[in-house]
Design a protein around this nucleic acid. Sequence first.
DNA 1: ATTGTTACCTAACATTCGTTTGGTGTAGAC
DNA 2: GTCTACACCAAACGAATGTTAGGTAACAAT
Lengths: 205, 205
Amino acid sequence: MSQTDAPRKARLRDVSRRTILDRTARLLVERGYSSTSLREIAKAVGMKAGSLYYHFDNKESLVEEILTEGVVHVQESVGAALDAARDAGPMERLRIAMECHLRTLHEQSDYASAHIRCFAHVPPEIRHRLRKVREEYDGVWVQLLKDAEDAGSLAEGIDPHFLRMALFGLLNWTLEWRLPPDRSLEDLTYQFYRIVFEGAARDGS
Amino acid sequence: MSQTDAPRKARLRDVSRRTILDRTARLLVERGYSSTSLREIAKAVGMKAGSLYYHFDNKESLVEEILTEGVVHVQESVGAALDAARDAGPMERLRIAMECHLRTLHEQSDYASAHIRCFAHVPPEIRHRLRKVREEYDGVWVQLLKDAEDAGSLAEGIDPHFLRMALFGLLNWTLEWRLPPDRSLEDLTYQFYRIVFEGAARDGS
DNA sequence: ATTGTTACCTAACATTCGTTTGGTGTAGAC
DNA sequence: GTCTACACCAAACGAATGTTAGGTAACAAT
């Protein structure tokens, strides 16, 4: 009846729901989509498998919500960092986006890394809807590269579309490694930025 | 009794076995490890599921053989191309290796693409043994980059280990795309080579 | 004190999975 | 013509899967 009543009533439900999402995201990263069973998820949460259906319609919608949120996490993280560096030049903004993308994947969001690792193995309908969600985040990079191009910072003959694909490959593939713990993500970003934009070859080779 | 007798006796067995491997590789690329069932494989071959056990101990060893052969395909393809260009400079040899790696993944071997797409989702023991198989192919690239470094063709401050990881990310991640059919793999290789080695930024940005 | 809702559990459902067992037709060897 | 090894099939196994139905403690509202 009070204003705090409705939130309090809804709290346990929301907490449990969030716990399920968190634990499932972790399992999806570790074992992939098909190998993560509802009973495994339930055990990680401290429930029984059937109880998951109180919070989600089925396994697919649970996973879809996680993978969708994964894109949102990366997009918000990169977006916030770019907003904070609104005055930086286009190349510096690209470097910031690279570091932020890497940091979200490796240190901040199991949702994001679950998205990368499971996308290809998820049912086609989900994958189709996830493509739509990706497009908005893709747009951020399209704009970043367009800004760099307009500023005359990109070399001639470089196709921005391929460059974007190359960047995604570089950044997302790092999930396949065990990151060397002696090197920071800042180092990694610096190396990748140098390779992709300044080139790994000595000038004139 | 004749010399052709033993081969003829063994032929049907070998043909069937190879058919199983081929069809399974294709299914692994399309649906991933856990979602590819033995009954699906058997149907694609024209057998019943139980009959697969005449040729393989179990699902895991069937898959392991495919993923292992995938590495062999790439390694032999790249190795042959490099042997044919023994006199080329280290940077040209790197370009050749890139194109050959891409071509094997996209046009020549389902075994190779199955390896890339399924490696992370395969049982840990198999993954552990596959790492050993990868190491030899990794050595090819370690040598390529060492040759480039020794020739003074690499920029200072570039860590060859990170550069190799970057290259693998770039090349292998292309399997996540639908390759634009209007662009050849030669174009793609050229773009990637320019980005990674000459840099996507205009000099002095 | 009673009622109703919330957030689960128990127990089962039908299916599918990898796998095994016991056969069976066919082809060549003798 | 008989025999034998080969390459497979038929049918089932137990276990695991996603999912559903019915029940039940705990708590809040009345």
